Computed example of a mutant assay.
Amino acid sequence: MFNSFGNILRLTSFGESHGKGIGGVIDGFPAGIRIDMDFVQAELNRRRPGQSLITTARKEGDKVEFLSGIFEGKSTGCPIGFIVWNENQHSNDYDNMKEVYRPSHADYTYKVKYGIRDYRGGGRSSARETISRVVAGALAKQALRQLGVHITAYTSQVGPIRLEENYTAYDLDLIETNPVRCPDPVKAKEMEELIFKIKGQGDTIGGVVTCVIKGCPIGLGQPVFGKLQAALASGMLSINAAKAFEYGDGFKGLKQKGSEQNDVFFNNCGRIETKTNHSGGIQGGISNGQDIFFRVAFKPVATVLMEQHTVNLDGVDTTLKARGRHDPCVLPRAVPIVEAMAAMTILDFYLIDRTTQL
Rank of each mutant, 00 (worst) to 15 (best):
S52Q: 10
N92K: 10
E60A: 07
I80T: 05
F82W: 05
F82G: 03
I80L: 10
N92P: 11
I54R: 10
N86H: 08
Q51G: 08
Q89T: 09
G50L: 07
G81Q: 00
P49Q: 06
G61M: 09
I70K: 06
P79R: 08
D93V: 02
K63F: 08
N96I: 11
G61H: 08
F71M: 14
G81P: 00
K59G: 01
D95G: 00
G61W: 08
V64S: 14
E99H: 09
E99C: 03
G69L: 11
P49F: 01
K63E: 09
F82C: 05
Y94D: 15
W85T: 08
A106I: 09
S68P: 07
D93M: 06
E60S: 05
P49S: 04
S104Q: 13
D62G: 10
A57M: 06
N96Y: 07
G77K: 01
Y101N: 02
R102M: 06
E60T: 02
R58E: 00
K59S: 07
W85R: 13
E99D: 13
T56R: 02
T56M: 05
G50F: 04
S104L: 12
N88T: 04
M97Y: 03
A106M: 13
M97A: 14
G61E: 12
P103I: 08
S104K: 13
Y94M: 14
I80A: 02
E60G: 02
E72A: 15
K98V: 01
S91C: 11
V84W: 11
C78P: 06
R58H: 02
I70M: 06
A106V: 07
G69N: 05
E87Q: 15
I80N: 02
S68A: 11
E60M: 09
G73C: 13
G73E: 11
T56H: 01
K59W: 00
D62A: 06
I54C: 09
R58A: 00
E87V: 12
Q51M: 11
E60R: 05
T55A: 13
G77I: 00
V64E: 14
K59I: 05
E87F: 13
M97T: 09
P49T: 01
